[in-house]
Write a protein that binds this DNA or RNA. Structure first.
Length: 317
DNA sequence: TGCTGTTTAAAGTTCC
DNA sequence: GGAACTTTAAACAGCA
């Protein structure tokens, strides 16, 4: 494995797996779905490390898209000509990274075939479901007078008109707790919800994640619409995560039962596992080793802790 | 022709 | 130490 150079911070390899990078890109789009080329673009825009050896990592990324059930291929509509399909996140893949490490998932997301005829059980059903959701998002945004660019020229900034805060939304990935040397932790999300300016935290971000291109930090400084009333203690949303009130087709399946796993859970539609899985205990700091293992030795400021998964569903009807 | 998508294989890394 | 997961490489087919 090639290691990023140490002389420059910005070209360090980000502590994210291709899965999380892809999820970030998808979540950054208003429709929560992107063509492959836009996923490439998102990653290269934000992580200079990935502006080199593009053939290598793009091949890996395509492999991940095809191989992992958490990504769903959505065919283009006739009015969306272009190459390739759109890619979306499976609605229930939100807690894949519940251990706080975006470098490695604790459990793999697997689509379960259920007998529930009300739930879309096949990937094609999920794709159709997501396509409908994308339409609804656009309709809702259009109703509020929000202009959306063409799909091919998506605004890849983090300030999206949608209020949906998926765990993979880049603002959520950035807005996580930082474990300070000595065990002191502070929550960027708490600061944000408390109305604190982001400046101090952002400077921390710039130090902690130097691999992230500076413009993305600037992007993060853009006003993030996040009503503090939407979040309870621990930064968890009060509003339930729902997908049009429909049961969701799949849940993340641990390969091995974990202590946190509830027996028989796989048989449930589990509409809000992403929230439930982010219990306060799961928000406790985890080893920073995971997040920095592939980069040069971590500095104290590079220690990462678990994300604050602030989920908020977009209001669509 | 180049991009996209799928599949297989192998090696490396991390977790339990 | 084994299992699970990630990364990388490669081959191949389909499509715009």
């Amino acid at each position: 494995m090639p290691r990023p150079g140490r002389n420059t911070y910005s070209d360090q390899k980000p502590p994210y797996s291709y899965i999380s990078l892809t999820a970030m890109a998808i979540q950054s789009s208003p429709e929560k779905m992107l063509p492959l080329s836009e996923i490439y673009k998102f990653i290269m825009d934000r992580f200079p490390y990935y502006r080199e050896n593009t053939q290598r990592w793009q091949n890996s990324l395509r492999h991940n898209l095809s191989f992992n059930d958490c990504f769903i291929k959505i065919p283009r509509r006739p009015d969306q000509p272009g190459k390739g399909s759109f890619w979306a996140l499976h609605p229930n893949c939100g807690d894949m990274f519940e251990n706080g490490s975006f470098l490695r998932r604790r459990k793999r997301f697997k689509v379960m075939m259920t007998s529930d005829h009300l739930a879309p059980t096949k990937p094609t059903d999920a794709a159709h479901y997501l396509q409908q959701q994308a339409k609804l998002r656009l309709s809702a945004l259009a109703a509020t007078g929000t202009h959306l660019p063409q799909m091919s020229t998506y605004n890849l900034g983090v300030s999206q008109p949608s209020t949906f805060k998926h765990p993979f939304a880049i603002e959520n990935i950035i807005a996580r707790e930082y474990k300070m040397p000595g065990g002191l932790a502070f929550s960027t999300m708490q600061s944000m919800s408390a109305g604190y300016p982001l400046h101090n935290q952002l400077s921390t971000v710039g130090t902690a994640w130097p691999h992230m291109y500076s413009t993305s930090v600037i992007d993060t400084a853009a006003p993030i619409s996040m009503a503090s009333s939407d979040y309870s203690a621990y930064g968890l949303p009060i509003k339930p995560l729902c997908h049009g009130g429909q049961p969701l087709p799949a849940i993340p399946v641990p390969i091995k039962p974990t202590p946190a796993a509830v027996p028989g859970l796989s048989a449930l539609p589990a509409p809000i596992p992403a929230i439930l899985s982010n219990s306060p205990s799961s928000l406790s700091p985890t080893s920073p080793q995971t997040a920095t293992s592939q980069s040069s030795p971590a500095t104290p400021s590079e220690t990462l802790t678990s994300p604050t998964s602030a989920l908020q569903s977009v209001a669509v009807h």
